[in-house]
């Protein structure tokens, strides 16, 4: 059984290499907390809070850092009367 498992496996080192390259590219680009995705996250949240009371519990931020493309998804629940309060 052990032998069978050994032969059926693909090597894992290429996966390690690729993961590290992506991660380190992002970490080297980041000085302090100021990499682009983090900066965008903070500025988007700040911009929104200017116009409405943001309930922290209703905000979901997801990031996925890729080799070529990173994605930032900010999901905010805007209550019906949010605009009136700010006005």
């Amino acid at each position: 059984m052990n032998l069978l498992r050994l032969f059926s496996r693909s090597p894992s080192a290429p996966a390690a290499r690729e993961r590290l390259q992506v991660l380190l590219a992002h970490e080297r680009a980041a000085v302090g907390d100021s990499d682009l995705v983090t900066k965008l996250r903070d500025e988007i949240l700040r911009a929104i809070s200017k116009h409405m009371q943001v309930d922290d519990e209703k905000v979901t931020v997801r990031m996925e850092r890729g080799a070529q493309v990173s994605t930032l998804a900010v999901d905010i629940e805007i209550p019906f009367d949010a605009g009136k309060k700010a006005a």
Binding site: L23, D56, E57, T60, V61, R62, M63, E64, R65
Partner: peptide, 21 residues
Amino acid sequence: AERRVVYDIVNVIQGEAKLTQ
């Protein structure tokens, strides 16, 4: 999960993010 880290424990302690986030 290294590509999906948005906030960390220090953000939570400093009040910059909710624990659930």
